[in-house]
Write a protein that binds this DNA or RNA. Structure first.
Lengths: 157, 157
DNA sequence: GTTAAGGTTTACCACTGTGGTAAGGTCAAG
DNA sequence: CTTGACCTTACCACAGTGGTAAACCTTAAC
């Protein structure tokens, strides 16, 4: 009955895909909490390639792909960059990895976050000190603007 | 002798500009700690327009412009966005401003920074907890990858 | 006067990660 | 067969910065 071409290039219809437990991009989006837009973007970065395409060129995802997309989402939620996620994903799929490699990446990312936190906290402190000295009423004089302009550093010509 | 066209469109040479205490973009960059690139970018955003141009179309900055550029740099150093800086600069130059307007902007920015700090700290804590549980040796099993992949959530097919 | 070095001009492209839009093809239900 | 929801690709946008290139200007040395 099925004179299928033996290769994986059999014409695949969407209904077939559903029957086989495969997913369209919209379903993948719902299953992962990502948007279709983001999934296509991650594909363009080489992170997730759909298992197949239907006759109509629709992307078709396997359960395995869904897990990978969830992995990416979780890593994004931890603040990893796409580059770091690419490495993490390859480590994840490499059964010969060493946990030291993963931990190294994690510690580097923690340090990056520490630096950003520190920088933000410094800015926050400087600005909130200034805001604390600003009366914040209808009058124009304002320590915040004074500090930004460094009014004491020059003549206001 | 000088039959200059009376308008401000007298041909201006770079040497003239220097004699008048005016500055080229490179000098402005050195005086402010910005790059020429950034100064042109700020101009494209409508923040700083050079006072004049030389005959050769070189940008010419007045001392007043230098102060404005320093203002922008300081505000950037406090983490304000370009849009916020545009408002801050207009408030700075508006002698009828109320300090309440400035303070409101500052407090909003502080809140934005607080949110970013909080988000970073949450990610940092989650990841450092995971890293603390990762032995980080040559073995492949790794709580960090487990958590990202949520291995307990599905069968590893 | 010529030349070389370095400053300046505009106009591009890159990054990061996401959102939007548009013009078109496809699928399922009525 | 129409309608609406979905999918496709290909653009533009954000915020700031860095980079490049080709062409022009200025200055100083020779």
């Amino acid at each position: 009955m099925s004179s299928r071409p033996a290769k994986s290039t059999q014409p695949l219809e969407l209904a077939d895909a559903h029957a086989k437990g495969l997913h369209s991009i919209g379903e993948a989006a719902k299953l992962t909490g990502l948007t279709a837009k983001m999934i296509r973007h991650y594909e363009s970065l080489g992170l997730v390639t759909p298992t197949d395409r239907t006759q109509a060129n629709y992307r078709v995802y396997q359960t395995r792909d869904i897990y990978l997309l969830r992995f990416i989402k979780s890593a994004r939620d931890l603040g990893f960059s796409m580059k770091q996620i690419a490495i993490l994903a390859s480590l994840w799929q490499d059964s010969a990895r060493s946990s030291a490699e993963v931990k190294k990446l994690a510690l580097e990312h923690i340090q990056e976050m520490d630096e950003r936190i520190h920088s933000l906290q410094q800015m926050r402190k400087a600005l909130s000190d200034l805001a604390g000295r600003c009366h914040g009423d209808e009058r124009p004089d304002c320590p915040i603007l004074d500090a930004i302009a460094c009014n004491s550093c020059h003549n206001t010509d």
